[in-house]
């Protein structure tokens, strides 16, 4: 009996130690990444390429997500508002809901699915095929060449994507509001514009920057430390998307509380 309890306690202890070790390694990885942003050399070409890969090529998925979410949100708020004869709040709630919460969170999750996995798979394959070792032997720091450009590009591009997504999301609400719910076009736009404050948009963009950092960092970390073979790369990809998504939700709560 005592032996069994010992075994359980030992297992819990080992898991806890492993968890703290992983957190510690991730924090060191993040610190190194940030420190390379301010230390030359800078790989401008790699950075520009990542701005396009992460930013431009994520635009369709973020735009479509925002468009449909804005439309669905307008319908739901209309349905709820009608119970209090408050249908007129649709433009306001759509605008605030999209800019403060749904734009950054859904945009972040969609980009996590697209970017975090692709970074993890790319770096994982590079690890397995010794391309990362090859970079080192060619006097090039892999953290500087591979990780920093991706993390910096995602941190910059996610707010841009979310800003565009916010606009498209509000437009989705407008299209449903004016075509399906018979709102007057000018009134809908005026209500939207009047309700929005700088803080609504900026808080969403701050969240987006943090989410961008998390998405690229976790993708790079998982790929960089990928196990061997196809299974290792597959596991790295899965870990990247799951960890990034959970961290986005956790960070979203903390940031919402801070920016409340």
């Amino acid at each position: 009996m005592i032996q069994a309890i010992d075994g359980i306690l030992a297992r819990i202890g080992r898991s806890t130690m492993a968890m703290f070790e992983s957190i510690g390694r991730l924090v060191i990885f993040a610190s190194l990444t940030v420190s390379h942003i301010v230390r030359p050399p800078f790989y401008y070409h790699a950075f520009l390429q990542q701005l396009i890969n992460i930013g431009f090529y994520s635009l369709p998925v973020v735009g479509l997500t925002a468009l449909f979410t804005g439309g669905a949100l307008a319908l739901q708020i209309y349905s709820g508002g009608a119970r209090f004869s408050a249908e007129a709040i649709v433009p306001s709630i759509v605008a605030i809901g999209i800019t403060r919460e749904l734009g950054p969170v859904l945009g972040g999750l969609m980009v996590a699915g697209r970017v975090s996995t692709s970074i993890a798979a790319e770096l994982g394959t590079m690890r397995v095929t010794e391309q990362i070792d090859a970079l080192t032997t060619l006097s090039t720091n892999p953290m500087k060449y591979l990780v920093t450009p991706r993390v910096l590009a995602a941190t910059i591009m996610l707010p841009v994507l979310v800003f565009i997504g916010d606009t498209i999301g509000i437009m989705g609400g407008y299209l449903v509001g004016t075509n399906r719910l018979d709102f007057n076009s000018a009134t809908y736009l005026k209500n939207t514009w009047d309700i929005l404050e700088f803080g609504d948009v900026s808080s969403g963009l701050i969240k987006a920057a943090v989410f961008g950092f998390i998405i690229a960092l976790i993708g790079c970390y998982s790929g960089y430390h990928s196990g061997r073979g196809a299974q290792g790369v597959g596991a790295a990809t899965k870990t990247a998307v799951v960890t990034a998504s959970v961290l986005i939700f956790a960070a979203n709560y903390i940031l919402t509380d801070l920016l409340f």
């Binding site: 050399p41 394959t125 095929t129 010794e130 391309q131 070792d133 090859a134 032997t137 060619l138 006097s139 090039t140």
Partner: peptide
């Protein structure tokens, strides 16, 4: 200089940039 077992060539770069990689850095 090192020749890796599987080549370890960079997939995203054309052959000449792989060969000249070190010459284009540092």
């Amino acid at each position: 200089g090192m020749l890796f077992q599987g080549g370890a060539l960079f997939d995203s770069l054309p052959v000449w940039q792989n060969v000249a990689f070190r010459l284009l850095q540092g």
